[in-house]
């Protein structure tokens, strides 16, 4: 009886997995072997391993790495300080709230702020530095990306810090560790899982951003995501687009496997 009810519950869910998880991945792999005319070919893969695409992959990685790193640098202290405030859940809600404002609207706001006559340049004028081109630079792209992803980095770190048993910190202090040692040897290792999931949540989307590169970086930065969009919707070369997507999927699996293994090891160590 129980087995039958279970099957009943799983029918719609398995249908979803088959249609929207497995089938799309298979389709991407299948299309990556087709040229524009629908003939079987390995040309797409050869093209991907050409210097142009390899360089693009590397730049894409580099930008995603920078974005993740800056997110982490800003997010960790923020999460740490937030756990020590009164009403921390309310403050956390306020951190999350901007992530519910449509992404495009926030990107659009930065077109205004970083524009030639925008607030950032007005500020630079006041400081005596003088206005300069901010929009369509690497700086603006990374800044806006960090801005957009920061709540997603703060949240897991905050949760990890919040769950941290305070007695460990007291113990470390009692045993004579300095604040810095306590942080490096006790707090940070114990919240590493939060950091890992934060990095995972930021790095993968950062690798495949495409509307920010168009709106904020003015097509100067081409990420793997931009390339997929370009091939699919502009060039109509679905084969090449699928090939790049295949590599994005492979990268994704590697990152997830890495961070999951870390999480499991962490759990084992804790037990």
């Amino acid at each position: 009886m129980k087995a039958r009810t279970q099957k009943l519950f799983l029918i719609p869910y398995y249908l979803w997995i088959a249609l929207f998880v497995i089938a799309p991945i298979l389709l991407i792999v299948y299309y990556s072997f087709l040229d524009i005319y629908g003939n079987f070919t390995l040309k797409n893969y050869r093209r991907f391993f050409s210097p142009v695409y390899l360089e693009m992959t590397l730049t894409s990685f580099w930008y995603a790495l920078l974005i993740t790193l800056f997110c982490l640098i800003v997010a960790y202290p923020t999460a740490y300080l937030l756990t020590r405030t009164r009403y921390k859940q309310l403050w956390m809600l306020l951190i999350i709230m901007p992530s519910w404002i449509n992404l495009l609207l926030k990107a659009y706001a930065f077109i205004g702020i970083f524009g030639a006559h925008g607030m950032a340049n007005a500020l630079l004028e006041v400081l005596g530095i003088g206005s300069r081109q901010i929009l369509y630079t690497d700086f603006s792209f990374i800044f806006v990306a960090v801005y957009i992803f920061i709540p997603f980095m703060i949240l897991p770190i905050f949760n990890a810090l919040d769950k941290l048993d305070k007695t460990y910190i007291d113990a470390a202090m009692d045993l004579g560790a300095s604040r810095w040692q306590t942080f490096l040897r006790v707090i940070f290792p114990l919240t590493l899982n939060g950091v890992k999931s934060g990095c995972q949540v930021v790095f993968i989307p950062a690798l495949s951003l495409f509307m920010l590169t168009r709106l904020i970086a003015g097509n100067r930065v081409i990420t793997l995501g931009t390339a997929v969009e370009q091939q699919f919707l502009v060039n109509q070369d679905w084969g090449m687009g699928s090939t790049i997507a295949v590599f994005l999927v492979i990268i994704m699996f590697i990152i997830v496997a890495l961070s999951e293994r870390g999480v499991r090891n962490g759990k084992k160590a804790k037990n």
Partner: peptide, 15 residues
């Protein structure tokens, strides 16, 4: 959940 948006979008377009 972890798939990049572009990959989801592109694969659904194929589907």
């Amino acid at each position: 959940i972890v798939s990049p948006d572009v990959v989801i979008g592109a694969s659904f377009l194929l589907l």
